[in-house]
Amino acid sequence: MINLIGGVPLYVLEFGDELVYLTPYTITLFLLALTFTVLVLISRPEKQVDIAFGGDAYRTKEISVSEMRFRRFMAIACGLATMGAMVTGDIFNFTLFTAMVGITNVGIVAAVKSPHVQDAAYQYGLVSLSATIPLFGGAAVYAATTGSLSMIELMKGTLPAVPLIAKGMLMLGVIGEGMAPFYAAKAEMFRAPGAPYVIMCSLSSLLIFLRVVEVVMLG
């Protein structure tokens, strides 16, 4: 129906069946993921202030060095997975990167010693784990019906049409990784201190959603 949704491919790097392709759209998304990953690398976490409501008391939360190192590692891993998802030209790789984003999102807040955050991370983990079923299932239906997982091949329009159910499953899988309406637990995760790391949780979901919009319009 619509070709070249993300613009004309500017560069295609092929590794056998695997390929990376850059369009104005994917470059924009990739650069944003890169910018925020660099911010994670060079930022130190804030000292979150908690107020005791009904009084004047307040305290600042400190993040220990070991906790900061682990969370920064997970945030960088999340950034790398997001960048991969932005430029990959293969639907299976896209689903793998998406699943990795789900795992690293839990990792970013898993080291925070707060029961609210831990509960939210656990609930988010269950949702994102469940979402991998339609995610990988969608990719499987793509392969079964078109015989290819290459976005470039789908873009050419020479393959059989992708069934709506495959697109729906792929979209549902991505939405389950942290978009509305499955994002309630994720919003609770943002209570955690460490803004540069926590922000990667929302950025990664958002960028992957933006990418899947392009992916489902192909073929």
């Binding site: 949704i5 993300g6 613009g7 104005p24 759209y25 924009t28 998304l29 944003l32 925020f36 804030e46 000292k47 979150q48 202030v49 908690d50 107020i51 600042t60 943002f190 209570r191 201190p193 803004a195 540069p196 926590v198 922000i199 929302s202 950025l203 958002l206 959603f209 933006l210 919009v213 392009e214």
Partner: peptide
């Protein structure tokens, strides 16, 4: 591309999020 503009619109959410969380203030958070 309209898609890029709307992508940017969605990313504004991350900007708001960054503004709020980066200060450490509970109101911003």
């Amino acid at each position: 591309s309209l898609l890029v503009i709307l992508g940017i619109y969605m990313l504004h959410k991350i900007v708001e999020h960054g503004f709020g969380l980066s200060s450490g203030s509970p109101y911003g958070k």
